[in-house]
Amino acid sequence: MVGGMLKQWRRLRGMSQLDLALSAEVSSRHVSFLESGRARPSAEMVRRLAEALAMPLRERNGLLVAAGFAPVFGDNDWTSPQMAEIRRAAGIILGAHDPSPALVLDAAFNVLEANSGAMALLGAGAPAAPSLNLVDLVFCPGPVRDGLVNWDEVALYLMHRMREGVRIRGPQSPLGAVMQRALAQPGVSQLGLGAHTNQGLVLLPVVFNAGGVETRWFTTVTSFGAPQDALAEEITIEQFYPA
């Protein structure tokens, strides 16, 4: 099982067995033996290969478990005591940014927290919950999609971010399922997903119309440095600024 996972991630990274061997400082023959199941890796070897493959922390834990070892990185829920510091830091950022919108997102664009400005912009009318997903709000028919004046541009930009996320985290990740859900929505097939758009733009504006009032925003994405927890590594804070 671990051999198949190694092969899948190596191919996802566009690496040959020799590429991986050189990066992990092992022989290509050993990589071949590991992928075929003829050899079993040590925990240290799994960590070296995962590092060479630039695997996210959650996927590194999965590779260790597949090889018969315990995970080494935390994998805590957003509401767990272990995430209290991250929640507190995120709360400071969201509170300081109000009344401009700000959201805390996980890797699959689930909304973990949102300030009052974000909830007013989204029109959700209730505290953010894991069931609220930014991709679904933008791509699925509803008030948020209807309110996006430049929906085509925003959808293309968000699809680019999802594709990059799937490249990093793998097609079997929760983000992969979210992206497939977005691709199935009406109008997405006509977006020209393979085309280069917005050339020459430094910032992509988000133009939103709510109740006949049009507002323009640009966004920044913040992440936490040097995390040792899978969820902490995945979290981003999306802040909207008046354009």
Rank of each mutant, 00 (worst) to 15 (best):
R87V: 09
R87Y: 10
R88Y: 11
R88G: 00
A89M: 14
A90C: 15
I92R: 10
I92F: 09
I93Q: 08
I93L: 15
L94Q: 13
G95R: 09
G95C: 04
G95D: 15
H97C: 08
D98Q: 08
D98F: 08
D98V: 00
P99N: 15
P99V: 09
S100D: 15
S100E: 12
P101R: 03
P101F: 07
A102E: 11
A102C: 10
A102W: 09
A102N: 11
L103N: 04
V104D: 10
V104M: 08
L105R: 01
L105H: 01
D106M: 04
A107P: 00
A108L: 12
A108F: 10
F109V: 06
N110H: 15
V111H: 06
V111R: 02
V111E: 06
L112V: 14
E113C: 01
E113R: 01
E113W: 03
E113H: 09
A114S: 08
A114P: 01
A114V: 12
A114Q: 02
N115W: 13
S116Y: 04
S116Q: 11
S116D: 12
S116A: 02
G117H: 01
G117W: 03
M119H: 03
L121H: 04
L121T: 08
L122G: 01
L122Q: 05
G123H: 05
A124P: 00
A124S: 07
G125T: 06
G125E: 02
A126W: 06
A126D: 08
A126L: 05
P127R: 15
P127K: 13
P127M: 11
A128V: 09
A128D: 11
A129D: 15
A129R: 15
A129M: 13
P130I: 09
P130G: 11
P130N: 13
P130W: 13
S131G: 13
S131D: 15
L132M: 15
N133Y: 05
L134G: 08
V135K: 01
D136V: 12
L137N: 02
L137I: 07
L137G: 02
L137W: 10
V138D: 02
F139W: 02
F139T: 09
C140H: 11
C140T: 14
P141K: 04
P143R: 07
P143G: 06
P143K: 06
P143T: 01
V144R: 03
V144H: 05
R145P: 10
R145K: 14
R145G: 07
R145E: 12
R145M: 10
D146G: 06
D146N: 08
G147L: 12
L148T: 01
V149Y: 05
V149T: 14
V149A: 06
N150Q: 05
N150M: 02
N150D: 00
N150C: 03
D152N: 01
E153M: 03
E153R: 07
L156Y: 04
L156T: 09
Y157I: 02
Y157W: 12
Y157K: 08
Y157C: 10
L158C: 06
H160W: 08
H160Y: 05
M162I: 09
M162A: 02
R163M: 11
G165V: 06
V166G: 00
V166E: 13
R167L: 09
I168E: 15
I168H: 14
